[in-house]
């Protein structure tokens, strides 16, 4: 498995860097992440420079995705949703490109390293807790106390546990799906080089990669909605 990744590694060929304090695999992940960032920034600059009234080519695809996400965020989070659109869209596009880059032979998806996914999940976690405190002040903690005042301490501890499990589940899901996908490709490669792995890659690109990016941003929206509307929801419940 090790020499398989080492043999075809475009990033390390063009940018043979060993970042200080990191293992070779982590260094590769960081470099691939830079590459992903470069792609996204270049695409953003290019697309905003050549915006057309009637979209063509790439602008079509990106417009569709942005419209799709925007539609979802105002639906889930409510009227305040569009204010948080930049974070959700950034996470979506970053994970999408990072997932898809793993399908190009010679690249390893940065999201198949737990470090990348955990970083994304921690950003989301800190952000929505911050928004919750900013919206409701110290009353936000009341949301954790549960309905019965006597049982509040127990509910508080349980709520803390389930809140802390959220970033863990976010990062583990993405990491596990991507790692499993890459592992399957590698195993299929040992049987035959061209046929079956390509079929699997198509399957993965059509379903897993897209859906994982989507579900990550969707859960971000759901958590944000929970943090923003905590009091409001309870009154309605």
């Amino acid at each position: 498995m090790e020499n398989g990744t080492e043999a075809i590694n475009l990033i390390q060929t063009f940018l043979p860097l060993q970042l200080p304090g990191l293992t070779p695999e982590q260094s590769l992940t960081v470099e691939t992440t830079w590459f992903v960032m470069a792609i996204i920034i270049a695409a953003a600059v290019f697309l905003s420079a050549t915006l057309r009234q009637v979209p063509r080519g790439l602008q079509n695809v990106v417009e569709m995705l942005v419209g799709f996400l925007e539609n979802f965020i105002s639906d889930i989070v409510g009227p305040r949703g569009p204010a948080y659109f930049p974070l959700v869209a950034t996470i979506f596009f970053f994970i999408l490109v990072a997932n898809y880059i793993g399908l190009i032979p010679g690249f390893v998806a940065p999201t198949s390293s737990i470090n990348t996914t955990a970083a994304c999940a921690v950003v989301v976690f800190v952000f929505y807790q911050y928004i919750g405190f900013k919206m409701h002040g110290i009353k936000y903690l009341k949301h954790f106390m549960g309905p019965i005042p006597v049982l509040a301490p127990i509910f508080f501890v349980m709520e803390i546990i389930s809140q802390l499990a959220r970033p863990l589940s976010l990062s583990l899901r993405l990491f596990a799906n991507l790692t499993a996908g890459e592992l399957i490709i590698k195993i299929l490669m040992t049987f035959c080089v061209v046929g079956l792995p390509v079929v699997w890659m198509c399957w993965e690109s059509l379903l897993t990669d897209w859906f994982q990016a989507f579900i990550f941003s969707l859960l971000t929206m759901i958590y944000l909605a929970g943090a923003i509307a905590s009091d409001h929801e309870e009154e309605h419940a």
Binding site: I161, L168, R173
Partner: peptide, 22 residues
């Protein structure tokens, strides 16, 4: 339905992780 699917897809893993985390 999509939204609902996203939410239930995270149920199983959350159940296990909460237990382990506790």
């Amino acid at each position: 339905e999509t939204l609902w699917l996203a939410q239930i897809s995270s149920l199983g893993i959350a159940l296990v992780l909460c237990t382990l985390f506790g």
